[in-house]
């Protein structure tokens, strides 16, 4: 469905992603694990072609629907972003625009990609808010982001990302900024919408915790390179790399400490 081959991204003083490859199919979840600064977020942005200068994609292909996204002209790419491949981010507190209502921010996407009129797009936005279990969605659509709690905002982000029924969702640490109990709710919601929309999910995180619950396959990234890839269970039981062991152990220590 989505295949990344030999992708490299450089910044003036560092190679952030180097020769990374991955695949994810519809209805499947792929975990991407690595320490912070390992290049996993850059990888996500590169797939979306959202690397900002001075960063630059220097090699690779992102094959989606038989086309290489990296070669698409920008007007074509704009039709892919948010419509067929969506993305949600780490910090729901800063990822929504503070000056527009959440309804407007979702409806905007629908209008843009599906050419709906304002009334229909707004109705679509309200439906999406219902899908992500926001109570009194019709009323809350008129509220601004600062009137929602962190977990609720991440739900809004998910509603926005899924409003145009994309095939792929890239989730970049979507629960890191949230409380532990809220984290579980968001993960539950992601599993639910995955089944409903037959979504392919690329789930980026620094911990195996959520990967274990969500993803059958995982790739481990260190310093921009894939150091290990395979079935989640297998990697958890027999990690080949010290780096992977460290990531798994830090998880265990965390649990032991609790």
């Amino acid at each position: 469905m989505l295949e990344v081959r030999n992708l490299s991204v450089v910044y003036p003083d560092v190679t952030a992603v180097e020769g990374v490859g991955l695949t994810v199919a519809s209805g499947e979840s792929l975990g991407v694990v690595g320490e912070s600064g390992s290049g996993k977020s850059t990888l996500a942005l590169a797939i979306m072609r959202l690397i900002q200068p001075p960063g630059r994609v220097v090699s690779g292909e992102v094959i989606f629907d038989g086309r290489d996204l990296l070669k698409l002209p920008e007007p074509e790419m704009v039709k892919v972003r948010g419509a067929r491949i969506s993305m949600i981010f780490q910090d729901p507190f800063t990822s929504l625009n503070p000056v527009f209502t959440v309804g407007e921010q979702i409806a905007e996407t629908i209008r843009l990609h599906q050419g709906m009129n304002r009334v229909d797009a707004w109705a679509g936005a309200v439906r999406m808010l219902e899908t992500v279990h926001i109570k009194e969605a019709a009323k809350r659509a008129h509220d601004y982001p600062h009137q929602f709690s962190g977990g609720m905002r991440q739900r809004v982000m998910i509603a926005m990302a899924l409003a145009c029924r994309p095939e792929i969702l890239i989730a970049d640490e979507p629960t890191t900024a949230l409380d532990a109990t809220i984290q579980a709710e968001v993960v539950r919601l992601l599993r639910e919408v995955q089944a409903e929309f037959n979504l392919g999910i690329i789930y980026i995180t620094h911990s195996f915790d959520i990967i274990k619950a969500l993803c059958r396959r995982v790739i481990v990234i260190n310093k921009g390179r894939v150091v290990e890839a395979g079935e989640t269970e297998k990697i958890l039981s027999e990690p080949a790399q010290n780096y992977t062991k460290k990531l798994i152990n830090s998880l265990r220590e965390l649990h032991a400490a609790h």
Partner: peptide, 10 residues
């Protein structure tokens, strides 16, 4: 961040 979100929306 919300500018990145806006771009990611297409």
């Amino acid at each position: 961040d919300f500018i990145r979100t806006a771009r990611a929306k297409g």
